[in-house]
Computed example of a mutant assay.
Amino acid sequence: MAQALIGDSEFDRDTAVLRRGPHEPGVYDVELSAGWTIIAAVNGGYLLALLGRALGDALPHPDPFTISAHYLTPSAPGRAVIRTELVRTGRTLSTGQASLFQYDGNGAEIERIRVLASYGDLDSLPDDVRTSAKPPAIPPPEHCVGPADGPVPDVGGSSAIMDRLMLKLDPATVGWAVGAPSGKGEMRGWFGLADGRDADPLSLLLAVDGLPPTSFELGLKGWTPTVELTTHIRCRPAPGPLRVAITTRNLAGGFLEEDAEVWDSADRLVAQSRQLARAPRG
């Protein structure tokens, strides 16, 4: 199968936004695809990419540098509207906010997500790197575990998103799939889109929330809804698969944090995130 190209892939089609026009500036009509659902709702990273695409069209700068999202109510497949607002613009950064709304049975808008983001131009950044961060130690993809390598565990609902991703998980983090979670709160693996589309800044917003939740390896089953997710895009990723490592150090009061790092094929840290999520009750 030919590799899909950036701008012409299922991900691009399913994150398309339609500008309403001069009569409603900054307003976009969208369709939330059922193909990106997991358990009980549309995946939060996919939703973040939708909002990120709308802001990239509305703001003077093209690339997300930092985007913080608060997930207010669960999203469902179907039509929605994104309303954006320019907060401030400068020479190197512009800041905007956006909200995604769906409709109740009476046609009234219900806010699903609200984000605040700063955009810039990743191609204008200097090349200097001073870091103590190191790429995660993950076995080669052929020694990792994907959905095609055995029965897909029952996650208690939809797993449609798995058909759209190339996931190869580190065997050390898949004990949950065979009823033997490690208890370490770690998830690591190779990540890409199933149609072979290379990563770009928008798909990095999906990648930070694309692996199974660390709560599975803590022995908890079920939906782990995101409350807040902040993502930093550090540079434009090189072609090839990504490596994603997610850790949870603290589950308390029914909530947990997930810290994610995304590395590209050139061993560069291209994205980082932290999210607060509600722990499953199981």
Rank of each mutant, 00 (worst) to 15 (best):
residue 78 G to H: 05
residue 137 A to R: 12
residue 175 G to S: 05
residue 62 P to A: 06
residue 131 T to Y: 05
residue 168 K to S: 07
residue 218 L to P: 00
residue 100 L to I: 15
residue 106 N to M: 13
residue 70 H to F: 01
residue 260 A to H: 13
residue 108 A to D: 15
residue 274 R to S: 13
residue 12 D to F: 11
residue 269 L to F: 11
residue 133 A to V: 10
residue 144 C to I: 09
residue 149 D to K: 01
residue 282 G to Q: 12
residue 79 R to P: 08
residue 107 G to N: 06
residue 163 D to A: 11
residue 56 G to M: 04
residue 51 L to Y: 02
residue 76 A to E: 02
residue 57 D to T: 06
residue 67 I to Q: 09
residue 131 T to S: 15
residue 85 E to P: 00
residue 71 Y to C: 03
residue 129 V to D: 07
residue 15 T to Q: 09
residue 168 K to H: 09
residue 269 L to M: 11
residue 126 P to H: 06
residue 219 G to N: 07
residue 98 A to W: 01
residue 132 S to W: 09
residue 73 T to V: 04
residue 75 S to Y: 02
residue 149 D to E: 07
residue 51 L to K: 00
residue 35 G to P: 04
residue 169 L to W: 02
residue 266 A to Q: 15
residue 239 P to T: 01
residue 1 M to W: 08
residue 30 V to W: 00
residue 19 R to N: 14
residue 184 K to G: 04
residue 217 E to V: 02
residue 140 P to H: 09
residue 34 A to M: 06
residue 144 C to L: 07
residue 243 R to N: 09
residue 71 Y to W: 05
residue 252 A to D: 14
residue 164 R to S: 03
residue 103 Y to P: 13
residue 93 L to S: 09
residue 243 R to V: 13
residue 65 F to A: 10
residue 151 P to D: 14
residue 276 L to H: 06
residue 280 P to H: 04
residue 151 P to S: 13
residue 205 L to Q: 06
